[in-house]
Computed example of a mutant assay.
Amino acid sequence: MSAPADSSALLQTPLNALHLELGARMVPFAGYSMPVQYPEGLMAEHHHTRRSAGLFDVSHMGQLLLSGPDAAAAFESLMPVDVIGLGVNKQRYGLLLNDAGGIIDDLMFVNRGDHIYVVVNGACKHGDLAHIQARIGGRCTITPQFDRALLALQGPLAVSALQRLLPGVENLVFMTGHGFNWNGADLYVTRSGYTGEDGFEISVPAASADAFARALLAQPEVKPIGLGARNSLRLEAGLCLYGNDIDTTTTPVEAALNWAMQKVRRTGGERAGGFPGADVVLAQLDGTRPLMRKRVGLVALERVPVREHVELQSLDGAKIGEVTSGLLGPSADKPVAMGYVSPELAAAGTRVNALVRGKAVPMEVAPMPFVPNRYYRG
């Protein structure tokens, strides 16, 4: 997911000057120069987000608007997800699939009444836009907003800080959104995020992003947080990172994302199926097409971090899969990972070994999330 290391070729987010001023260590990510951590370091940033409120710059991600009377039905034709039935200002997780049922990208979308607002992954956004235009460009108007900033304010005290700037934002519940005005700038805020904590994602015009970020950082609860802690937070929350845990070779069923495919798209009725790769995905769901692998959570039984691309073996030494994300979970206080294993070894409590530098590290399949989610549902 990283861009080439040639810094001259890297794009910058509207908050680039602020990151440098705050002493961030910048790295290439998804074609952008992005802050991986600030002077306090990854561990401090991780714990601050779990305890208080962390501000993340996620402006590398892509924002799109789909508009027109057929926009919902058109977008639904690309995913095994209920778009038509989504209420106004309600948000949902979605999966763009290819014709083999592989995941082109995972995304979030909101029904904003007169249009659908979509947020896609930074490394995929140009490919996603081309794919969406090619498939449904004749059925709706597709407007990229790649120049807008996107900020994530995450943690149990995020609402305390944000409501001082945007009164009324405290009335949002998990996976809902609403428009707000701040100093003349039109913002769109959803109560969501990718840390497992309560929090918000805020779409901001580029020209207002620096001032808005500084206003947030002036709140006593808020500190800046980099990509390093964002990764450790999302892994503890059991959330997939596109390019690591899911990609075009994995189907939603292999990735254990069955929950993201609503019943109306899966069984019976006129809206079941009809999405790219439906024959593969629906056959995997009903068991007529056996799975060859399944995504699981894993906990190491020794205090040894087990990282991505490490081979997983059965207890008798046969290769059964691979770790796709892994680290020493700062809040879990143990090595946690996710990866793919043979389906017969996917049950919680199953023992496997990870081959770390030639040494077998015992691991156990474990339920996710590794740290309880704390979304605000009202």
Rank of each mutant, 00 (worst) to 15 (best):
Y188A: 06
F146T: 01
F146V: 01
G122K: 05
L172R: 00
L216T: 11
P220R: 12
A149E: 11
L153K: 09
H131C: 06
P220Q: 13
I142A: 11
L151C: 04
S232Q: 10
S208W: 07
M175P: 00
C124Y: 13
G137I: 11
G179L: 02
P156V: 00
L233K: 06
V189G: 05
I103S: 03
D99E: 15
V110R: 06
A161I: 08
T141H: 12
L107N: 08
I116M: 10
V119K: 12
G137S: 05
L162T: 04
I132R: 05
R139T: 02
S203D: 15
Y188K: 05
H131P: 07
Q91V: 14
I136P: 02
A130F: 04
N171G: 10
A152S: 13
G196D: 05
D105S: 10
G137M: 01
G228E: 07
S208C: 06
R191T: 05
A123N: 13
S203E: 13
E197W: 00
A211H: 07
I142F: 13
G193S: 05
A158E: 01
S192D: 07
A158Q: 02
G155N: 02
P156K: 01
P205K: 09
Q154S: 11
L227W: 08
G168I: 10
A149S: 14
L157G: 01
V204K: 10
G184C: 13
G138D: 15
A206D: 02
A213S: 10
G137Q: 09
A130P: 09
P144F: 13
D210I: 04
I103M: 15
A134Y: 05
L129I: 01
I225H: 01
S192R: 06
G94A: 14
G122V: 14
L97E: 08
G127Y: 06
L216I: 13
I104D: 08
E170D: 15
V118I: 15
G94T: 12
V119Y: 01
G101E: 08
F200M: 00
H115K: 13
I132C: 08
F200R: 03
M175D: 06
P144Q: 08
D114Q: 12
A207K: 09
W182Q: 04
A215F: 13
A134S: 15
P167I: 07
I142V: 14
K125N: 12
P205T: 08
Q163M: 07
G168E: 12
V189Q: 04
V119C: 15
D105V: 01
M175Y: 07
Q163E: 07
L129P: 03
L151Q: 03
F109E: 05
N111Q: 10
S192M: 11
A207S: 15
V118F: 02
H178F: 03
T190R: 10
A158K: 11
